[in-house]
């Protein structure tokens, strides 16, 4: 009894002294990190190293890919996402596909998605999914994927338009829809997300040249600003190609360690040692991004300037 009381006291002391709590600004400080707690009024929010400006009225979102494994690591990454969501209240999450690996029974939807991100869902964070090669087309009807029954769709937030494409089946009907939508789009930011990366330094898959051949002319002509993809189980920021920014964020549930080809001419920055997700904030003509690993380390960050291209 006395030993139990002592143990309880030790735990309580540790908790209140902050030793047992997770505080990334103390344990894993980012080079350019800013303590979010200094900017956000609620004191209960955990402090994480944040490089994003947290401006009022900005568009805030997260990016994950290749998540649906129900693995312990997927959950650990989701826990880090939740900590960042509390410090940087992103409103929605873009999913790069492979949302559910393997079978897709109701139990799988729960284990591989809902249970993992339940706390984010409780915080009213919306997920917008695209389909990967492991996804059944009927995922488009799932309530939490917000696809409105469509394999490809568009939505807007603030001054940004987001296009979810189905890169697994880029037929003429989809390309026509995409071009029609782009042609009338007056948004400041046009951001496309889908599964297969047009540019990649991955050893397993690499650049999807067939896809690139048909979508890149549309990106260039209609001034698409940013392209986000998954499929490769790592993070990569590609050097801008024909004026378009490309990212790969496909390590949300699986990791292909060491798969990024060293000295690839495409790579601006890459991270293939652990799983990761991205957070982003659009402030007028700037898009700020930060990439965070499963251990809470900031592995990349920066600011993209709007290219201001017109169709």
């Amino acid at each position: 009894m006395r030993r139990n009381t002592e143990s309880l006291l030790i735990v309580l002391v540790l908790l209140f002294s902050g030793v047992a709590s997770t505080n990334y600004s103390q344990t894993k400080p980012a080079a350019s990190g800013v303590a979010a707690g200094a900017r956000v009024s609620q004191p209960a929010r955990p402090t994480v190293p944040l490089t994003l400006p947290l401006k009022e009225g900005s568009v805030r979102f997260a990016i994950i890919g290749d998540t649906g494994t129900a693995s312990k690591q997927q959950q650990q990454l989701a826990d880090v996402m939740l900590q960042y969501q509390q410090a940087f209240p992103f409103e929605f999450v873009l999913m790069m596909g492979d949302n559910l690996y393997g079978s897709e029974t109701p139990g799988d939807y729960r284990k591989k998605f809902q249970d993992v991100y339940q706390k984010l869902l409780d915080n009213k964070v919306k997920f917008y999914a695209s389909l990967g090669n492991h996804d059944q087309p009927n995922e488009r009807f799932y309530e939490y994927f917000n696809m409105n029954g469509k394999e490809y769709y568009r939505f807007t937030k603030g001054n940004a338009a987001f296009y979810a494409l189905n890169s697994n089946y880029m037929d003429k009907a989809q390309l026509k829809w995409f071009e029609d939508e782009l042609a009338k789009d007056t948004s400041d930011w046009k951001i496309c997300f889908f599964h297969h990366p047009p540019y990649s330094s991955g050893g397993k898959h690499g650049s999807d040249k067939q896809l690139r051949e048909v979508v890149e002319p549309l990106f260039v002509k209609y001034g698409v600003n940013v392209v986000l993809a998954g499929h490769e189980h790592f993070y990569e920021r590609i050097k801008p190609q024909k004026g378009v920014y490309y990212f790969i964020s496909g390590a949300g549930g699986k990791l292909r360690e060491g798969d990024v080809k060293e000295s690839s001419p495409l790579t601006e920055k890459s991270f293939d040692r652990d799983m990761s997700f991205m957070i982003a904030e659009i402030v007028k003509d700037e898009l700020h991004f930060q990439v965070i690993s499963r251990t809470g380390e900031t592995v990349d960050s920066g600011v993209l300037k709007n290219q201001k291209k017109k169709a």
Binding site: T105, N168, Y169, L211, E213
Partner: peptide, 25 residues
Amino acid sequence: PDPKEFVEMPATLLLKLPPLPKQLK
């Protein structure tokens, strides 16, 4: 089979094939 992945249909190849109604792939 439900757990089996779908191989990506290369976009340039799809454009060579006769078009399908949306109910088929």
